[in-house]
């Protein structure tokens, strides 16, 4: 029993940063722009959040700074792909390299500096509920924030005018133009908002999860976020479930090892990816057909074979 609780709780804890990144990627891809630079935005968020948290002592200001740093990097992606028509894959990877360089240049002096980040805060009453309380309500504030962000993004995308514009930019951009909206502005807004969310995810890593900064600390979580969006079929609610699943796979190994089981962490790590591939292979046509139409154009150099 304690094993299950450990894994679930670890899944929520470790999955949250990935979730923020994937929510950001969802918004961006819904507008028809894939952003491989999400990994970079998370790195910027991790360092931005860390620096501001160390200097001001306020983790909330840190999270905000992380979000802004992530948004700034995504704005560059938006500029390159939306206004300059650059390849989305090449631009995203380029910005990842930019973020790697910038964060190691400006982060070097912060390695090993102590930080007073977010600490665990048990929600009164709710945290006493067996299992559920431990898993969901004995976490840090950014986890609680994510409980609100997920339905908010869903509401934004599917119930508001802004969401309609974003989805139209991703599905039938020409009808935006017909109605006098700027596709470029909508896409740039969505990509930047996506970077903002990814930045929070990065800040969660450095000032809530690890309470440390080190070079390249995001180590692939941003790419996992990109994969997760496909797994979740561009739905914010499913992103949440998927992120916890990825998080649990990461938590399972150490939980088992702590109990003396000799398991190989990396076989477990591969599960979410293999699962995503299997889902795609089985439901491929269905999944792909539910992807934003403008996104398909990005992927498809040639008409589908």
């Amino acid at each position: 029993m304690s094993l299950i609780v450990d894994v679930l709780s670890g899944g929520v804890r470790g999955g949250t940063s990935i979730m923020y990144g994937a929510l950001g990627e969802t918004v961006s891809e819904r507008a028809g722009v894939i952003n491989l630079g999400t990994e970079g935005s998370m790195l910027m968020g991790a360092l931005g959040g860390y620096i501001v948290c160390v200097e001001t002592g306020s983790p909330w200001l840190g999270a905000l700074a992380g979000a802004l740093a992530g948004a700034a990097l995504s704005l560059l992606h938006a500029y390159l792909v939306v206004w300059r028509g650059a390849s989305q894959f090449a631009s995203g990877l380029t910005l990842l390299f930019l973020a790697l360089g910038l964060t190691s240049l400006f982060g070097a002096t912060y390695v090993g500096k102590p930080v007073d980040g977010f600490s665990r805060w048990d929600v009164p009453l709710l945290s006493d509920i067996p299992v559920i309380g431990t898993v969901l309500f004995q976490q840090d504030p950014l986890v609680y924030l994510s409980f609100a962000v997920v339905p908010f993004i869903w509401w934004l995308l599917f119930k508001t005018r802004a969401g309609l514009l974003i989805r139209t930019a991703g599905e039938r951009s020409e009808s935006l133009t017909v109605h006098g909206y700027s596709v470029k502005a909508v896409r740039a807004g969505a990509v930047t908002a996506g970077g903002f969310l990814a930045g929070i995810g990065g800040a969660h890593l450095s000032i809530a999860y690890a309470n440390a900064w080190f070079e390249n600390m995001v180590s692939g979580r941003g790419f996992i976020a990109v994969a997760l969006v496909i797994f979740a079929v561009w739905s914010p609610i499913r992103v949440m479930g998927g992120a916890y699943l990825f998080g649990m796979a990461l938590a399972l190994g150490s939980a088992l090892q702590a109990r003396g089981y000799n398991v190989n962490q990396f076989a477990l790590d591969a599960i979410p990816f293999v699962l995503t591939l299997a889902v795609l292979a089985l439901l491929g046509k269905k999944t792909v057909s539910s992807s934003p139409a403008e996104l398909k154009k990005v992927f498809e150099n040639a008409p589908p074979t």
Binding site: F89, G220, F223, I224, V226, A227, I230, N264, Q265, F266, A267, D269, A270, F273, V274, T276, L277, L280, A281, L282, L283, G284, K285, T287, V288, K296, F299, E300, P304, T305
Partner: peptide, 24 residues
């Protein structure tokens, strides 16, 4: 060819499986 999954997605995902195989 079989499932219509775009190769940009699948090759990206396979990178992580490959890395996990290496680490394993």
């Amino acid at each position: 060819l079989w499932a219509g999954v775009n190769e940009a997605i699948s090759t990206l995902l396979l990178n992580f499986v490959a890395l996990d195989i290496l680490l394993f």
